[in-house]
Design a protein around this nucleic acid. Structure first.
Lengths: 255, 255
DNA sequence: CAGTGGTCTAGACCACATG
DNA sequence: ATGTGGTCTAGACCACTGG
């Protein structure tokens, strides 16, 4: 019964989609909504009308509408929460990450407020993979740190870091005080460390990753896998990270 | 009417999908087909039965079946050609590309036959972007080279390379003889060149890219963007490339 | 021409989150 | 209890490809 002109539904008023004009209807809907997002008519965090409402306004079936919505979700423009609604995600602005720089050095070249959330700090036993990479015995203690990075309140990066526990007896205390891995390194006498290897691959967000990053499961993502070493080339950190595909660009080369 | 046991249709015999057991039917179908591909029951290049046949055998609607097929296409396992059929793509094996190495040095560490197809060799006028990157005047002549790389007959990489024409007067002849960009460089007195910058981003295959790579349009891809410079740090090559997301892993760091 | 995949409709039931 | 998005059905028409 609502007929307010400020409702998001108004964005879907008075539209006709010439059937089979030259592009599929779902693509026309896709372009229409994308335009509304990029032009700011629909702003980040805003909730869209229900699918039934939108489909009715657009004069199409829910199935057709959903085809457009799904593409927008895969591209990171929208995110859907079951039983709740569909929301506009942060604009997938290109976020350049230059290798060899710390996260903070990278983000300082961008506008927008960045924050970090520590989701987990625990002590695990090394499995075969982590033991090999960290150069420790299987079953020995390793520190597991999971953090999420937010850009303008939107999660854009989740990573898991693993450290050999024997190298960092004061990890909990120092990290608890400073929330900084670099500071933990320094507190344990490691002043110089470097990125030994970075691997970038692609995949699709697992349900867990999707929940953390506020994405639809199955959305394509970057997976990064990196090692940091100390001055004597011992591995002191192993990082696994996950980015939405459309939110970031990686830059390698001399700065 | 066909009831041959060797038909790909046999792979879909005797299956029941308990409705709403614990995972959606389309996911069960997805897992079933993926298993057949990874175990080799369905081999690369093989054509699947028509969607109507498969849907009937599986006891589901075409819509439900297509949901599973679409996911498999996005992941690079299947490729569909309108009016023709659905085919198994090459296994999306991880293909490691180490930065700073030539393509040939990289592929030599892998099994499988690699070939190269030159799709285009032309002389264009520099637009604003290419002029800036190559350090030439807008409108000046630049050489445009497009090549496709095939792994076991499957296209896995397409790239466009641009060169400042004035640096390579004999480009056509040398490249025509050797099909090698390195040889072109050497023939013009450039013995040492290096990768100045590599940028990796993500996107979705355009219709043109999809056709070249034999993917479904909209499939997620890596986009790479790189510059090569000569001994005096002048840019002599600009490369834009496109890989299926699931076919490659990029490795950076000291070798 | 027959078969293929691509699109679309008009319904329906479900699990989930919220008030 | 209501509304949400997620799933599924049983049809239909289309454009395209190939023999």
């Amino acid at each position: 019964m609502l007929e307010q002109s400020n409702s998001p539904l108004a964005a879907f008023d008075g539209l006709t989609f010439a059937p089979r004009q030259d592009s599929p209807i779902w693509q026309q809907i896709y372009n229409h909504i994308l335009g509304r997002i990029e032009s700011g008519v629909l702003s980040p965090g805003e909730q869209l009308p229900g699918e039934n409402h939108m489909a009715a306004r657009l004069g199409v079936t829910r199935v057709t509408l959903r085809r457009a919505l799904q593409q927008l979700q895969k591209e990171g423009h929208l995110t859907a929460r079951k039983g709740v609604g569909i929301f506009v995600r942060s604009p997938p602005a290109i976020f350049s990450i230059r290798d060899g720089r710390s996260f903070r050095e990278n983000i300082d070249t961008h506008s927008g407020s960045i924050s970090t959330v520590t989701r987990l700090l625990a002590c695990d036993q090394a499995d075969q993979t982590s033991a090999r990479i960290l150069g420790v015995a299987v079953g020995s203690a390793i520190i597991h740190l999971r953090r999420v990075r937010l850009l303008s309140e939107q999660p854009i990066y989740v990573n898991d870091k693993y450290f050999p526990a024997h190298r960092f007896p004061d990890f909990d205390r120092v990290y608890g005080e400073r929330q900084s891995v670099s500071d933990v390194f320094r507190a344990h006498g490691i002043d110089t460390f470097r990125r030994a290897e970075t691997r970038i691959s692609g995949g699709f967000a697992s349900p867990e990753e999707a929940e953390i990053l506020q994405l639809t499961p199955g959305t394509p993502v970057f997976r990064i896998n990196a090692r940091n070493t100390d001055g004597t080339n011992d591995t002191i950190e192993w990082t696994r990270g996950c980015w939405p595909l459309t939110s970031v660009e990686f830059v390698f080369g001399p700065s």
